[in-house]
Design a protein around this nucleic acid. Structure first.
Length: 183
DNA sequence: AGGATGATATCC
DNA sequence: GATATCATCCTC
C-alpha cells in the first residue's frame, strides 16, 4: 500500500474518481486507525458544473475546492451529516470527488453506505476541511495491484436542481459490491 | 412522506 | 438580519 501523491489528484476528475475505486481511505486519530475501501464516488467537475458547490464561485465555503489537489473538502449537510471530498485537477479549477461509500476494513461500523455515514464512521468532521490527504494520519492508499473490477457509471444522487448537469453520469461504483449505497 | 438541524448564500 | 436551500439518513 502506498499513499497516493498530489500528482494522482491533479488529473481529469472523472478519471481520478474511477481510479479511487478500490483504494483505501485511512484516518487515524488518538492511535485508532480506521480504514475502508472506497467502493462508490461522484465527480464534481468544477465551476461550470452546476451540481458542484464551486459553481457559486470562490466563497468562504468553497475556497478549498479551488486550492491545490490532494486536500480534503469537508462540509456539513442538512445540519447533521458531513460529506467528504478530495480536491482534484490543478489549483484554481474547483473540482472534487465525493466519497459516497466504503467497504469496512478496520475499526469501522457495518453501515458505511452513503456519504453521511462514511464521515460518521471514519470520524471525519469540519475540522478536517482543508486537511492534507497525503499525511500519515489521513490519506488514501492504493493497493499494490488492483483486482479487476467492473465500474458502473450512473447519474449523481441528490442533484436534481442542476439542470442539464443532473443527468450526467458522473457517479461511479464497483459493480456487485454490497457496500454501494444505492443500486 | 416527513422531520432533524445548522452553515451558507442570497436576498431585503 | 431573515429566509430558503441543501452532494443525507432515519422513522413512521
Amino acid at each position: 500500500m502506498k499513499i497516493l501523491p498530489p500528482e494522482f489528484y491533479a488529473r481529469d476528475t472523472a478519471s481520478v474518481a474511477q481510479d479511487l475505486l478500490g483504494a483505501t481511505l485511512v484516518h487515524q486519530v488518538d492511535g485508532l486507525r480506521r480504514a475502508g475501501i472506497i467502493v462508490e464516488v461522484e465527480a464534481y467537475l468544477g465551476q461550470h458544473d452546476l451540481a458542484a458547490h464551486s459553481s457559486k464561485g470562490i466563497t468562504k465555503r468553497t475556497g478549498i475546492m479551488f486550492g491545490p489537489p490532494g486536500f480534503a473538502y469537508v462540509y456539513l449537510i442538512y445540519g447533521i451529516y458531513h460529506c467528504m471530498n478530495v480536491v482534484t485537477e490543478p489549483e484554481g479549477h474547483g473540482a472534487a470527488v465525493l466519497i459516497r461509500a466504503l467497504q469496512p476494513v478496520q475499526n469501522l461500523p457495518d453501515n458505511t453506505r452513503g456519504p453521511g455515514l462514511v464521515c460518521k464512521a471514519m470520524g471525519i468532521d469540519r475540522r478536517l476541511n482543508g486537511h492534507d490527504l497525503c499525511s500519515d494520519d489521513f490519506h488514501i492508499a492504493a493497493p499494490a495491484s488492483r483486482p479487476p473490477v467492473t465500474i458502473v457509471q450512473r447519474p449523481r444522487i441528490g442533484v436534481a436542481y442542476a439542470a442539464e448537469w443532473a443527468d450526467k453520469p458522473l457517479r461511479f461504483y464497483i459493480e456487485g459490491n454490497p457496500y454501494v449505497s444505492k443500486k
